[in-house]
């Protein structure tokens, strides 16, 4: 029982950064913009969250700073993709290279410093509920907010008129434009929103999960988030499933390290998230080849009127 609680609690806890980043990327890609800058945005978000939090002593400002930093980078990417009609692949890679460098450069003085961190939820009487109580007691409000965001984004995309516009712009910008939908502003908004969530996901790492700043502390989670978007076939509900899979693997890693380390060598365990990501990508092709599994039709295509 204790083992199960341990695994479930860590699963949920470590799935949040990937969940936040992939939800953001889903919105971005649904509008037709491929953002490969997520990894960089998460790193800069992690640094900004830690530094602002440490300097101001306020968690709220820390998370706010992280979101602003992610959005700022997203603005660069959006400008290149939307106004300059640059290659979205190259622009995203450039943003990641730049942001990774910036985070190491600016974060140098903050390595090993002690900052603030977000504590666990006060669950009160709920703690008595078997399984759910102890698992919940190890989470925090940002985790709950991220979970709440899943149905929210799903509903927004499927059922609201902004969601309809976003999908229209991502599937057929010419038709959307002809119908009077503002293509460029919607794409800007979606890309910025993606950057915001990526930044927040980064800050979750530096303010909640492993408080503190470490160079390259995302360890590829931004890339994994992008893979999860494909796994999720661009739908938020499945992104939660993907993130939980990633979290579950991380939890198993901790579990084996804590118990039978001889059973599975540590280096194999560290490979697993990356192997799983590759595995998940082809699982999704095996499982479904329907229309719904397809990417937004205009993904990666610059829109050009006239």
């Amino acid at each position: 029982m204790d083992d199960l609680i341990f695994i479930l609690a860590i699963t949920l806890k470590s799935s949040i950064p990937v969940l936040l980043a992939s939800l953001g990327e889903i919105i971005t890609e649904r509008s037709g913009i491929l953002n490969l800058g997520v990894e960089g945005m998460m790193l800069v978000g992690a640094l900004a969250g830690f530094v602002v939090g440490q300097q101001s002593g306020s968690l709220l400002l820390g998370f706010g700073g992280a979101m602003a930093a992610g959005m700022l980078l997203a603005l660069v990417h959006a400008f290149f993709c939307i106004h300059l009609r640059a290659s979205q692949v190259i622009s995203g890679l450039a943003v990641t290279i730049l942001a990774t460098g910036l985070s190491s450069f600016l974060g140098r003085p903050f390595i090993g410093r002690v900052g603030i961190h977000l504590g666990s939820l006060p669950v009160g009487p709920l703690a008595e509920v078997p399984l759910v109580g102890p698992v919940l007691a190890q989470q925090n409000w940002l985790c709950l907010a991220a979970l709440a965001l899943v149905p929210l984004t799903a509903w927004a995309l499927a059922g609201s008129w902004p969601g309809l516009s976003i999908r229209a712009v991502g599937e057929d910008p010419e038709a959307a434009d002809a119908a009077g939908v503002p293509v460029a502003p919607i794409r800007y908004a979606c890309t910025l929103f993606g950057g915001l969530l990526a930044g927040l996901g980064g800050a979750y790492l530096s303010l909640v999960y492993t408080p503190g700043w470490k160079e390259g502390m995302t360890g590829g989670q931004g890339w994994i988030a992008i893979a999860m978007v494909i796994f999720a076939t661009w739908r938020p509900g499945r992104a939660l499933l993907g993130a939980l899979l990633f979290g579950g693997l991380t939890a198993l890693q901790f579990y084996f390290q804590a118990t039978g380390a001889e059973l599975v060598p540590a280096w194999i365990l560290r490979l697993l998230p990356y192997l799983l990501t590759v595995g998940i990508l082809f699982l999704v092709t095996v499982l479904k080849r329907t229309r719904f599994g397809a990417a937004p039709a205009a993904l990666g295509q610059p829109f050009f009127r006239g």
Partner: peptide, 18 residues
């Protein structure tokens, strides 16, 4: 820090892209 080189690489890529 050595990361400055990476920043310059990113900037070069972005400006040439522009």
């Amino acid at each position: 820090p050595a990361a400055f080189g990476q920043i310059m690489e990113g900037l070069i890529l972005l400006t040439v892209l522009a």
